[in-house]
Design a protein around this nucleic acid. Structure first.
Lengths: 344, 344
DNA sequence: CGTAAACTTGCAAACGATTGCAAAACGGCG
DNA sequence: CGCCGTTTTGCAATCGTTTGCAAGTTTACG
């Protein structure tokens, strides 16, 4: 890679390596390294002189070499496993928002973020490969997808890992997530208290998080002696719309309360209902899950179960850093909260 | 880091370095390296034997060492500069969606993605520091923010960089983005053709992309002899709501057509209007920009200017890879398209 | 002025993989 | 069996920093 020698300030070439800088300063490479690190072992005057020299020559430490030598990278891996047919998950608003907050929290702590999207079906080794690369100091897994078993297996021998998702009794891996079951209970209870006598669960009950939401809703429904039906619906934008359209007439015929596994689904359902002239919440009550930014903007504003995404991100980062430090941090389950707006 | 020697298959320890593997196979490290790389210089039988050994011992190549030696990392940096008071940009839906598609496109090409969020005001050296770290083979800058000059300066000496944003005449850096000015024209023309006689531009006209959208709208407004006022509004969720509430009464009093710089703003405005009982599009016409997934879900569905985000991401990646390969790829300006829904 | 203690510096060995070059092994053929 | 041309392999240098250790330089103080 050719590089002009006359960039930067006039008459001042760029210094590429610490050795270049050492030559310029008339000291050894070791001293330069210590000077740049602010190591107190080096004479204050020399240190300042070298740091100034580094600035003047636009010197940037080669972090790859540094990482190799120190066996630490200052990079946290964030991996999103895409289970079967959940292709679009990466652009799912919830995950994207979580990712944004993760970026914020990690930046705050001086870490870089390496994002990797994997399809476990194509690459059974996805977690080991990431961890073994030596490029990251720890890993955050966003969503358990259908990889619960593999995550457990890896967790048994690799400490610096935390997972966004559900916590099962007796599970090994450190997870951060909402109490999905409780959230489901809150949602269903709200619908029932508002007068709903027949519930519909809108969403794919396969993924473990959604399964928990459904289980919670069923808890509440059974306690109140109210029936609840499942209407499986995918999250990917291309399939979602059609599936909801297909479901909605049946739902309107049978139920008077909908619990959507996600606000994304709830918003779409709300639109379908209003297009058909079904009064919300008059004729049909509706509760979502997530409390995305859009949810306050619908007409009428959506009643939903709030997850504090920013707090979740901070929790993930906090636990991970503690595990990197060797501490044996435990899982974190965050209580969801019902946000009562106007759809239920 | 202590590591048990009995992980994996029974009786089979883990091999950490290529040298471990070499010892096990009874060959030299060089041969193992070549075998794993599938290099034809090594005997086919030896190669297979070594690869099997690697599998059995759960061997993972240390990519940090490999990167250092090869002077290539297989990682692309994605950096989001947050200009003054655009703190929340990272969680802005548009950027998040773009990021998701970038992750897809880069994964497709076998690259990893390193995400970095920077605040240029706090760190004037943000671009050089990222580039000089040696950790990335190229960089994608998401949004020019108020850093146009610095990006230009860096582009003059660093090739593998592409930027999402506006293209100015004579600009050095390689950009991919929509023709914002044309988009603005489309929006304003639509409002005017629908009968609007006084326009309002909702959004911060400072960032260069938004400035271009406003300029386009003014082109169309002037051509039609229609006045257009600017109502500066920030994008960060905490400030946005209040500012829009403050603006909306004035707007309703003076104008009958709103061009919002972003769908996010449009959706919020739509809500305010409906809350006040202002008929849309009857009394007030409204056009947004971006065509986010939500925009089709509002009531009534939002008329907006569509940007093909997925295509943009592919364009960014494609151009970057060509530049990494040494080609001198030029900027890409994508035509926006008006999506006529029901608000104008 | 001598000596011990306290600072500074340089040297050289890592970190783990890749690769040019030379040596060794192999196969074919006269 | 000897020689030559191919394959295969090993050796050792290299990528750029960091850091333990030893050597060199000051400083302090009796």
């Amino acid at each position: 890679m050719a590089r002009s020698d006359t960039d930067g300030k006039p008459g001042v070439g760029r210094a590429r390596t610490i050795t270049d800088l050492a030559r310029l300063a008339g000291v050894s490479a070791g001293t330069v390294s210590r000077a740049l690190a602010g190591n107190s072992l080096v004479n204050a005057k020399t240190r300042d002189r070298i740091q100034e020299l580094a600035r003047d020559h636009g010197f940037q430490l080669n972090r790859v070499a540094s990482n190799l030598r120190r066996q630490k990278t200052g990079v946290i891996g964030v991996v999103i496993p895409l289970g079967h047919d959940r292709r679009q998950q990466v652009s799912d608003t919830f995950f994207m928002t979580l990712l944004g907050h993760l970026a914020d929290a990690l930046t705050e702590e001086g870490y870089d973020l390496m994002l990797r999207r994997v399809i476990p079906d194509h690459d059974g080794d996805w977690l080991d490969r990431f961890i073994g690369s030596g490029m990251i100091d720890g890993v955050i897994v966003i969503g358990q997808s259908d990889q619960f078993a593999r995550i457990e297996e890896v967790a048994a021998r690799y400490r610096p890992m935390v997972v966004w998702g559900n916590r099962e009794p007796g599970q090994v891996h450190c997870a951060v997530g909402s109490d999905n079951r409780l959230g489901g209970q809150l949602a269903a209870r709200r619908l029932i208290e508002g007068g709903a006598t027949h519930l519909a669960f809108l969403g794919d009950p396969e993924p473990i998080e959604f399964a928990a939401r459904y289980a919670g809703a069923r808890d509440a429904a059974e306690a109140a002696g109210v029936p609840i039906d499942v209407y499986p619906t995918h999250l990917s934008p291309d399939r979602m719309a059609g599936e909801i359209t297909a479901h909605i007439d049946t739902i309107v015929g049978r139920a008077n309360g909908i619990f959507a596994a996600t606000d994304t689904l709830a918003v779409a359902a709300l639109r379908e209902l209003r297009e058909r002239g079904v009064a919300v919440p008059g004729r049909m009550r509706l509760v979502g899950f997530d409390d995305l930014p859009i949810s306050a903007q619908t007409m009428p504003p959506l009643t939903t179960v709030h997850q504090d995404i920013a707090a979740g991100a901070r929790g993930l980062v906090d636990l991970l850093l503690r595990r990197i430090a060797g501490e044996d941090a435990a899982s974190l389950v965050m209580p969801p909260a019902l946000v009562a707006r106007d759809t239920a």
